[in-house]
Computed example of a mutant assay.
Amino acid sequence: MRPTTEPAATHAAPALTPAQRAALAHVRETALRERPAALAAIARALAGSGVAHGPEHLIAAVGANGRLTLNFHPDRLLADGRTVADALTAEGVYRSQFETGISNGGLTAFPGGDRDRWEETLFGGAYQTAGVRPADRPKYGGLNLLDHPDGACPRFGSCHLRLRPQVLARATFCFGDSHLGPRDLGTVDVFEPVLAALLAATDGTGVSLGVPGDVVTLTRALLRRREDAAWAPGAAGRALDDYIEAQVHGELSLARDVAAMVVDPSFRGTETGATLAALARRHGFALRWHAGFALPVDRIDAEFRGPAIPPLAARVHAEFARPGELIDAALIGRAAVSVVTEPSRWADRGPTEVTLQHLKQLWHVLVRFGAPRAT
């Protein structure tokens, strides 16, 4: 694929609400308190690995090269019956879990739910104040420091939006998923606690943001000069559990804030694919494709996400696939739509939410073990 140019931004950043400003300030103040200890930890990690660069070089590289990505499944249904792709096309904004009522993680985004409590801790109660609307809540994604073509957090979706660099200024970060109560928080200008945690995890596990590596290879990757206009997708990151979560505060406008949308190739030639192409044209950003994931139905691992997943995969394949067709994102999506629109068809498997959860886990198996789709 030839490199393509990302359209230039043409609009000013949105005005933030008092709650959004307070959330950003809370995380920044927390990170500032931890900055001295984090700087010392970064310096030790670099020196211990023989890296000559100082912490300031890595921090600068994060701001210069880091890109926010928001993974999503375009073919999932909202409460009103529209697909996510249809809603994005019509509305031109990316909405939070508190607005959509759906999630590719846990379904707890409501007042008093787990997501609400996690945000209360993470943002110092900023979003629990009077007058905060569902639309004011942050939108979740990841910081794609290693340019994974499947996005920073593929567990949450087969496609992703790649945001413009200026959105970094209104994002907060934590190392790992926020439902785990992370202590290592930061903003793009006070990123040291998150970087220290990333270096420590890399040194301790030999894995960095989903791929094998040590502190030296991670440092080289962070400092490598990138051309923003170039798109040269490599191997998938498959970072199901190893990522830097990002929370974006303020409205996410597709026309203003999105540089590109990267789509799973299983949607080529489908209605969903056509909708996504129209979405990119309508809102003026680039449309790209990553290599995707595919598995034969008899190759679904029974241990990674449990023994319920291979029988589910066999049923999905038998009812929705053509003979010889592989398990891929679009096939799982067709089953997910059926679970919502034809619940009686799946009643033998128990509650609808259980089957939907198992389909999410089937997607995780596909990301972990799937091969790139032949194109």
Results as ranks from 00 to 15, higher is better:
residue 14 P to G: 12
residue 22 A to V: 11
residue 25 A to R: 14
residue 30 T to H: 14
residue 33 R to I: 01
residue 44 R to H: 10
residue 44 R to M: 04
residue 48 G to M: 00
residue 48 G to K: 01
residue 48 G to Y: 00
residue 49 S to K: 04
residue 50 G to R: 05
residue 51 V to F: 04
residue 51 V to N: 06
residue 52 A to D: 06
residue 58 L to Q: 08
residue 79 A to V: 15
residue 81 G to Y: 10
residue 88 L to G: 03
residue 92 G to F: 02
residue 97 Q to E: 12
residue 100 T to I: 05
residue 104 N to I: 09
residue 106 G to A: 10
residue 112 G to R: 03
residue 116 D to K: 07
residue 122 L to D: 00
residue 124 G to C: 06
residue 131 G to R: 13
residue 136 D to F: 05
residue 138 P to V: 13
residue 153 C to Y: 03
residue 155 R to H: 11
residue 164 R to E: 08
residue 165 P to K: 06
residue 175 F to N: 10
residue 200 A to D: 15
residue 204 G to T: 06
residue 205 T to N: 10
residue 210 G to R: 03
residue 211 V to H: 05
residue 212 P to S: 04
residue 214 D to H: 06
residue 215 V to C: 06
residue 215 V to P: 00
residue 223 L to H: 10
residue 245 E to T: 03
residue 245 E to G: 15
residue 268 R to P: 03
residue 268 R to W: 07
residue 270 T to E: 04
residue 283 H to R: 03
residue 283 H to E: 01
residue 289 W to A: 03
residue 290 H to R: 04
residue 293 F to H: 12
residue 296 P to N: 04
residue 296 P to I: 11
residue 301 D to K: 10
residue 301 D to S: 12
residue 312 L to F: 00
residue 313 A to S: 08
residue 322 R to M: 05
residue 329 A to S: 12
residue 342 E to A: 14
residue 347 A to S: 11
residue 353 E to L: 05
residue 354 V to R: 08
residue 356 L to H: 02
residue 357 Q to S: 08
residue 359 L to M: 06
residue 371 A to S: 12
residue 372 P to R: 09
